[in-house]
Design a protein around this nucleic acid. Structure first.
Lengths: 164, 164
DNA sequence: GGTTATCCAACCGATCGGGTAGGATATCTC
DNA sequence: GAGATATCCTACCCGATCGGTTGGATAACC
């Protein structure tokens, strides 16, 4: 598994906030109930998003959380980074927050490890997929449709189940 | 971290076997020493590759392992699958070994989880990156160059650092 | 002042990653 | 046949992390 439930719950939370954009702050409790997630755990997760500046909080009665920016300006790249920390395919990787990457044991014996090429490609692919997906997209995706079989397509046609 | 050391060691092992393609079987011990990896652990890792049919073994003195197919016909897709098991971004995912994917709790309340779109894209990206990389590529990559800063580019130009 | 909410720290069980230990089996060489 | 050399195979171990829970402090509204 690539991501933990932190990412899953955190993104679900963001989607819920995005869905209620414009209305006042949304209490965690209501989200926890709506999505059937443990409240106490959600508290710790939303703290990660807040630290990263993706959501803002209002304390006290009638308080809650709201998106710090419009959903269309929040990329999953940022969200996952906040939730999971750096997304490196291997622990020897520092990511440059860009396509570029560094490997700690690169000069093991003068020769760079051949695996580096592989991990770099994978990381680039993941990074790209996350960067190309905005919260707004996910929010608008939360409609019935007839799923069970879905398609990737980041910028293609809606594409209803392509199953034969 | 996406992958564990199983993938790292396993791929390193495959690269080493690929490098010595044509010669007789290579003993694990020599690989363990060359790559500085724990032999006992490598044994368990190579067993995964053998079960998947990627390598073949010869037992007894002067025995060892060799690739079951030419390096150019082994994709990292298969290798990682053998080493890490299915590569799903989330535990609710069955992968179809294709772009298509199923989510176990898809009809939570009639609406598919919005996160599904995201995880599907990520999985597709990883899958694609792995599928596009062959062992032969990695083998031929194991040369000096002047790394520390490398680029993704599966089929683009060399592209030196594009930083402003 | 009570209720509602965000904050914050400590704790906890279970799983898993990353090994090790020890031996059984097969094959080559002498 | 006796070693030596390898692959095989099972069982154990330990530390870290995941996925929470408990309990409370603080802040804002009524």
């Amino acid at each position: 598994m690539i991501f933990t439930t932190k990412a899953e719950y955190g993104v679900r939370l963001l989607i819920e906030l995005g869905r209620q954009e414009g209305t006042g702050p949304v209490a965690l409790k209501s989200i926890a109930e709506a999505e059937d997630l443990p409240l106490a755990y959600l508290e710790r997760i939303v703290a990660l998003l807040k630290k990263q500046g993706l959501v803002e909080a209002t304390r006290g009665a009638h308080g809650g959380y709201r998106l710090a920016r419009p959903a269309s300006e929040i990329t999953m790249d940022e969200a996952i980074l906040a939730l999971e920390g750096t997304i490196a395919p291997m622990d020897c990787f520092f990511d440059d927050a860009e396509g570029r990457v560094m490997c700690s044991h690169l000069t093991d014996k003068g020769e760079g490890c051949g695996t580096k090429l592989l991990w770099t490609r994978v990381q680039g692919a993941v990074h790209g997929a996350l960067q190309r997906t905005t919260l707004a997209e996910l929010v608008s995706f939360g409609v019935p449709a007839a799923p069970a079989l879905i398609d990737i397509a980041p910028a293609r046609e809606p594409a209803v189940a392509t199953a034969p």
